[in-house]
Design a protein around this nucleic acid. Structure first.
Length: 127
DNA sequence: CCCCTGACCCTAA
DNA sequence: GTTAGGGCCAGGG
């Protein structure tokens, strides 16, 4: 498999999310809403979070580079500690993540190339 | 079909 | 700077 994108995802939406996240360079960050907009799924930030939740770990997809718009790691009991794993991975890439999950989002914000901008709007689940 | 929940976001206080 | 409320979309009971 030449692509880092997991092929075991049944939903087209999930694959779009993973493919986009795979473009985020090391040491840089994107928000859920940002990823949603980049695949043309405006307003579907929550679905992006769902897609990442369905992602089997470990994964070649750099899921840890996606945080919420508040500049904090999305902590939730349902994640079974993957949120803390995310903090460790970001620290390893040189991003100063505070113990409470807050981080300097503005300093590490990813600026995607125009080639990745959405060509058309898409639904959250459909292509 | 109704209700609740979720790795969200924006605005207002 | 942080917290609270309402809105958003899709899944599951």
């Amino acid at each position: 498999m030449a692509s880092p994108v997991a092929a075991d995802s049944g939903r087209p939406f999930d694959r779009r999310v993973y493919a986009m996240v795979a473009h985020i360079p090391p040491g840089q960050l994107a928000t859920y809403g940002q990823v949603a907009e980049m695949i043309g799924a405006w307003g579907c930030a929550r679905q992006v979070g769902w897609a990442l939740r369905r992602l089997p770990l470990p994964s070649a997809v750099p899921w840890h580079r996606v945080v919420n718009a508040q500049g904090r790691i999305a902590m939730s009991p349902g994640r079974e500690g993957s949120d803390w794993m995310q903090r460790e991975l970001l620290l390893a890439e040189g991003i100063a993540v505070a113990p409470d999950g807050s981080l300097p989002l503005a300093r590490h914000r990813w600026h995607p190339p125009a080639a990745l901008l959405p060509l058309a709007a898409s639904s959250c689940t459909k292509d």
